[in-house]
């Protein structure tokens, strides 16, 4: 039995025929849509490397069945930059050296984008750290990550003030 689903992935509508309901959103993205930016770290919802936005909210794509998300809008790290311009969170990670090896970085950045959208952390470093606790960094780049998220928060706030 196969399962036709529709997903909007990084702005494009995709008609997908799943031959197996066991496919997670992460495996769909990586193995079938060639979007390998989202990483498979633990595959059990513990590390956050697979974080993507589903209908605007950050979730662990390893713990979601693709078939259950029929109709959803998915944004991955590949969909953040517009044209040649980095998303403010991506730029802030570069500016503040928010990584070492880079494996967790797509998940960190997608989680940070979700955090800023949620709007609960503001400019409080403690709230940023708590809000980012679902993303592990084995290199221990947390200081740069926190600085990057705070800087992106500041840039976003300034942009909204100007608008």
């Amino acid at each position: 039995m196969s399962f036709p689903i529709t997903l909007t992935v990084n702005g494009s509508a995709r008609e997908i025929l799943l031959d197996d309901p066991r496919v997670t959103l992460l495996d769909l993205l990586r193995e079938r849509l060639d979007l390998t930016g989202s990483k498979k770290g633990c595959d059990r919802g513990q590390c956050g490397a697979c974080t993507v936005l589903v209908d605007g909210r950050r979730v662990n794509s390893c713990l979601a069945l693709a078939v259950s998300l029929d109709g959803a809008e998915v944004v991955t790290i590949e969909g953040l930059a517009s044209g040649g311009e980095l998303h403010p969170v991506q730029a802030a990670f570069l500016a503040h050296d928010g990584f070492q090896c880079g494996f967790c970085t797509p998940g960190q950045i997608m989680s940070a984008v979700g955090l800023l959208r949620e709007g609960h952390a503001g400019d409080d470093p403690e709230r940023v750290r708590e809000g980012m606790s679902g993303n592990l960094c084995r290199c221990g780049a947390y200081q740069g990550i926190t600085e990057a998220v705070l800087a992106a928060q500041g840039a976003t706030a300034r942009r909204e003030d100007a608008a």
């Binding site: 919802g45 956050g48 974080t51 909210r57 950050r58 979730v59 662990n60 713990l63 979601a64 989680s111 979700g114 955090l115 949620e118 809000g131 980012m132 606790s133 679902g134 993303n135």
Partner: peptide, 9 residues
């Protein structure tokens, strides 16, 4: 409880 990603789901 859990993480923000898990709480969102």
């Amino acid at each position: 409880g859990a993480s923000a990603q898990l709480r969102n789901a």
